[in-house]
Design a protein around this nucleic acid. Structure first.
Lengths: 253, 253
DNA sequence: TTCATACTCCCACAGTACGAGAATTTAAAA
DNA sequence: TTTTAAATTCTCGTACTGTGGGAGTATGAA
């Protein structure tokens, strides 16, 4: 897209998001000054936003979100949007690879699986369901999400959790987990090698929002084998690709 | 405003509201065809909406609301916006007239008062509070709101309610109330002449949304007297004016 | 009332947004 | 796999939208 092809629209939307953030605390003229918008232009755009109900006037020089903006959220959660935006892409990846793909988010110390797309055979991650919550420390998705936590959040998590072994390879030592998470952070991907089930492995990568924060993780699960292990770099690349496509679907540059 | 001064913005917002209504059921190309938007233009606009997070891609040719649109609604209700948009105008009216102004909406068979702006003296409607719910059949605001109900909704209301007299003049007969509401509908205003309190009267007018539906009512209350009664036409006009200003604050043409 | 600020209007001009059509990508059907 | 239809992106000359300074008006506060 040519950069200035949608200048008025872009400016108006920036203005809108400023108003949405500010919630009528700051005067309109102050906001537009920050944006460097000329008065007449700003008012012209505001009038159109007003006409469409996206903003409302709550006083002289004060605007807040409008009634149309309300209707938008009705019965819809961030997670729903994320799931719908990701679903077609996960479906494609699982079709291409024959493996089962997941998308999960971190909620209250657990991983919530928002999307599951089954691969060709059913012996991969047959126990997961959409909406299911699982422990974070023993899955690829979980490790990616934990790796994105701040120091304090991670400390809290590590001290609150009670780590039980799902398999002999599960990492249950808080120190070892810290090190593992550091590796994940550095590599930008996590591997679960028979840590959650004896005969399973998976790769997982983060999904970043526009500002680089990890908001979810994608994974591919497969039955464990030497040859499967060999494919991991390629799969991880594919997943990263998929993640950035999901990001694009959500409007993250 | 010159009509085509904000064409791209206007088109984009129309597109946005279509998507918001449709929720990804209809394909993008169908929507744009309905709007008569050329393909390339439509995609250019959609790309910008996407970039700002107002829409998200949920599949090939499918778009739904985006994550930014979510953030908008956070902790905000339609009633809040209505109240904030109306408050400065009611304040002005009550200052000009010295009377107490109210704005109320119909909720579950009762009137909820969203805004109260006190006049000069305190002997008008001293018993009302913002957020208070009162019976609809005996106040000006209530009568305006009842007058806007559909036949079936009104039938339901009339059969469900138990009408008690607040004063000797309160209309408690369901037939008489029907006639009174017809008058209100025809005149576009309601008068409460000592029906809720012995020494009080008030005028009320509807607030219409863009499509003409009554979404709220505004009123002015005063102590009863012959001279006060004589002012009612002028006050009603002023209120109608105020209502249309509130409407403008909300973006209703 | 006065004052400061918000808002609207005007209009000539710069350059954005337009949109047809071609090219490319994509997903699903065959 | 190939085929096919639809979605999406690209290109580019130009029409006309959007711009923004400035003047003028409206508004609310003191």
């Amino acid at each position: 897209m040519r950069l200035d092809d949608t200048r008025s629209l872009g400016r108006a939307l920036t203005l809108l998001s400023l108003i949405a953030t500010d919630r009528g605390k700051t005067s309109f003229s102050t906001l537009t000054k920050e944006l460097g918008l000329p008065t007449s232009t700003a008012h012209r755009l505001a009038a159109e936003l007003l006409k469409h109900g996206l903003i409302s006037r709550i006083g002289r020089g004060k605007y807040d979100l409008g009634v149309a903006a309300m209707g938008f959220a009705r019965g819809r959660e961030f997670n729903d949007i994320l799931a719908e935006a990701a679903r077609p892409i996960l479906r494609q990846v699982s079709k291409e690879t024959g493996l089962t793909a997941h998308l999960g988010v971190f909620e209250e110390g657990m991983v919530t699986y928002l999307v599951k797309s089954n691969g060709a055979s059913l012996d991969q991650a047959h126990f997961t369901r959409e909406g299911m919550q699982l422990e974070a420390y023993c899955s690829g998705v979980g490790k990616v999400l934990l790796a994105s936590l701040s120091e304090v959040d991670l400390d809290e998590y590590l001290s609150a959790e009670d780590f039980v072994s799902a398999t002999p390879r599960t990492v249950t030592n808080s120190c070892a987990l810290r090190q593992e998470l550091a590796r994940v952070r550095q590599k930008g991907m996590a591997i679960d090698d028979r840590e959650i089930a004896e005969d399973m492995m998976c790769v997982a990568v983060p999904l970043h929002d526009g500002s680089g924060r990890t908001i979810a993780a994608l994974s591919l699960s497969m039955a464990w084998s030497d040859q499967a292990a060999a494919q991991i770099p390629a799969l991880s690349l594919k997943l990263t690709h998929a993640a950035s496509r999901v990001g694009r679907n959500l409007g993250y540059a």
